[in-house]
Design a binder for these strands. Sequence first.
DNA 1: ATTCTATCTTGACAGTGTCAAAATAAACTG
DNA 2: CAGTTTATTTTGACACTGTCAAGATAGAAT
Lengths: 202, 202
Amino acid sequence: MTTLNKKHYHHGDLTKSLLESASAIIKDHGVESLSMRKLADIVGVSRTAPYHHFKDKNALLCALAEEGFYEQGKILGRLRAEQNTAQESFKKYVNAYLEYALQHSEIYDLMYGRTLWKAGNPSDSLKAASKHTFKSWIEWVEELQHQKILPNNNTPLRIGQTTWASLHGLARLFIDGIYLDKADLSEMIEQMIENVCTHTKA
Amino acid sequence: MTTLNKKHYHHGDLTKSLLESASAIIKDHGVESLSMRKLADIVGVSRTAPYHHFKDKNALLCALAEEGFYEQGKILGRLRAEQNTAQESFKKYVNAYLEYALQHSEIYDLMYGRTLWKAGNPSDSLKAASKHTFKSWIEWVEELQHQKILPNNNTPLRIGQTTWASLHGLARLFIDGIYLDKADLSEMIEQMIENVCTHTKA
DNA sequence: ATTCTATCTTGACAGTGTCAAAATAAACTG
DNA sequence: CAGTTTATTTTGACACTGTCAAGATAGAAT
């Protein structure tokens, strides 16, 4: 087990294969149509093989969600690194956040949804990833407050909580199929930004 | 079948009993722990008896959600009927909305969540109930715009969509167990109102 | 070559939603 | 009242789920 190379047995890297296939399945058919047995079958392995790589289904989903946090973090981090005005930067962030949420809606649901956080049992590393994401968001909120983009009438935590809640709410309405007409999305985003920012206020 | 009285067979009104028991179960243990079989058992009837009153599980959940719309509508309607300043009225509405969402979180989830709207199959009457609720919300938004409570920089529909999304997002974060500390709630509500309203703006 | 360990499979169990067919209970019709 | 129709409920069955325990196998370590 000291070897790093994992090309053993008739399946190169089951852990990875499982995550990839699972990700594809939920992307195409939704998380409720993902079963451990079908997944094993698709990957070409017996029903219980996955259980040697993930404690249970919940653990597999946690791993997927965690991947989501890293990917989302990369996207949003890259964006913040760009040289933009603070205002532009924030605008792009909001757009990118919603784009990610809608394009990876099933992963987003795992990251921030009931399945894992309430009905399920979020793993420690998932909780850590989520906490890290939130923390760095709050730090940026503080910057944005100094730059007068976000309001100063409350702590970074509160402002961060509420503006994130707003984005999240918008994302959810589309993801959950309550709002369907995505043509309206960009206008809603625009309006949401106006609600949440300081300087655009009437 | 012309008789209105439904006290037939050894079970007075199965439909009603099923809804009540189901409601109690999800309130206490979450919707994922509701099974048709256990429900039948608790009500004291065979496994498949419920299927003569509800086409399937989805239909039963739709009925529960629909009840939720009526109850929520009553609460919020009563509130709007009170004699308050528009500002007070809106504030109370927001608070009542979130109070309902958190106190009936499982029903709220059925009303506005993925289970029925995306993963499931919302019944026509559920869709109607939801549409009606939304429509009357938008009408009120228009009033609030005239009263300068909500901003006039966009149509009632857009303002209604975004402010509702904000409330919904806040509700969801608590319901789904992402935010846990309900002590923070009232401060967040306060801040959210500031974000969303016109006249309190800095 | 032998022991050890990581990986995988087979078998099993309890649980799920729900269909089809049979049984029963009440309502309607003569 | 008797006989038929309709509303309600039950029993049996099927395919599917997550996951545990025990055994088989393949590779690593000695």
